[in-house]
Design a protein around this nucleic acid. Sequence first.
DNA 1: GACGGAAATGAACTCTGGTTCAGTTAAGCA
DNA 2: TGCTTAACTGAACCAGAGTTCATTTCCGTC
Lengths: 215, 215
Amino acid sequence: MAYRRTDTVSARLADNRRTILNAARELVAEGGFAAAQMTEVARKAGVATGTLYRYFPSKEELCRQVFREVSAREMNVLVSIAAEDRPAAGRLRDVLTTFATRAVRGRRLAYALLAEPVDDGLTEERARFRRMHGEIFAGLLEDGVAEGTFTVINTKVAAACIAGAIPTALIGPLAPESHEMENDGERMVEEIVNFCLAAVQGASPQRLAEQRISA
Amino acid sequence: MAYRRTDTVSARLADNRRTILNAARELVAEGGFAAAQMTEVARKAGVATGTLYRYFPSKEELCRQVFREVSAREMNVLVSIAAEDRPAAGRLRDVLTTFATRAVRGRRLAYALLAEPVDDGLTEERARFRRMHGEIFAGLLEDGVAEGTFTVINTKVAAACIAGAIPTALIGPLAPESHEMENDGERMVEEIVNFCLAAVQGASPQRLAEQRISA
DNA sequence: GACGGAAATGAACTCTGGTTCAGTTAAGCA
DNA sequence: TGCTTAACTGAACCAGAGTTCATTTCCGTC
């Protein structure tokens, strides 16, 4: 009879895959994608470098997988808040606060996901990640507009602005070496969130129009 | 008598330096810093690769120089608008609009300055660039607050948010391959700017406070 | 015009880090 | 136990891109 993969083996294979992914993820969380070199990943996972290539066709693919897993976890947290059954304003505030707070807490990881220089494959993955944020925000903005709480005109643009404002405002502080938020992260997050909320619930279109003319 | 550098030679040296910088700048404007490989720069400048190292100690230094020159030009445009003698609101609107419009027009270059993955040296340079933007914005915000037009509490944070929101909102469209703004760039810029303005002149602190509680 | 020191050249070198593959070990099946 | 196939190993390989340096060309001085 021909060779057939037994359950024990399948299990072990799956196990190895996980071990490798975990090793890679930990390295990324510690030192960004730059630190996730194949040799290092192998060492940390306790396998030979060649073995990695039995589980992933290339470094790029491995890193993408890591990126997806990590970002999916983040997205889920946000999505579940966004889906709660209450006014959009509160949900938006909480989503933004959560987003920012988690980024501050997991600095290096956030930096890797949002800002670290990475090569093309990951840039693409990152764009997807950003787009998903944008969609969550845009959804909340639409809800808020429907409720009459927000005065946003183009929800997509506003969502993109928010998705950009938060990480960038955090980035100096987010950079691996920075310590400028040791104690005051909370306060900073609150201010950033306030900025974004003000943008969507503050000015009326008329007022902006007046401003434009008088300027 | 010892050898002495004559004027003709000095001039030629300075000339070469410029030629090299220009070649590098053009390559960056066409294909980002990734395209500015030493061999290419040399070819485009019409000199040998080794020659580059008589003018710049390393690729990093050459690229930094290019970055500084290009970004300085951008900054000057903004600074001169910011310094005009009129209400802050109008100046802010114009600074932001100019910033965004120029980015849209010089897409690839803007992408290189703002978003392209680059290595450490340039990341640092980019941070400086961002910080300078932040300072311009913050200055305008303070003016506006003093005038009573803006309701910003923490001008630094708000400035950082703005500095992040604009490029990011443009970035999808800014990415080298994207064409999604061919005709409607103007409109998009306007919407992004409106978002930022709304954030600083819209909501009163009280209203935000209420919001926070009722959420 | 010839000598000495800058400047320029570009092929060769180096360094980094991903990828491969011939050889070895472990697992399934009779 | 013996044969076969899958899985694993890790040192060697390779590619890309920045940098060097022995050699050549150019320029200023005597």
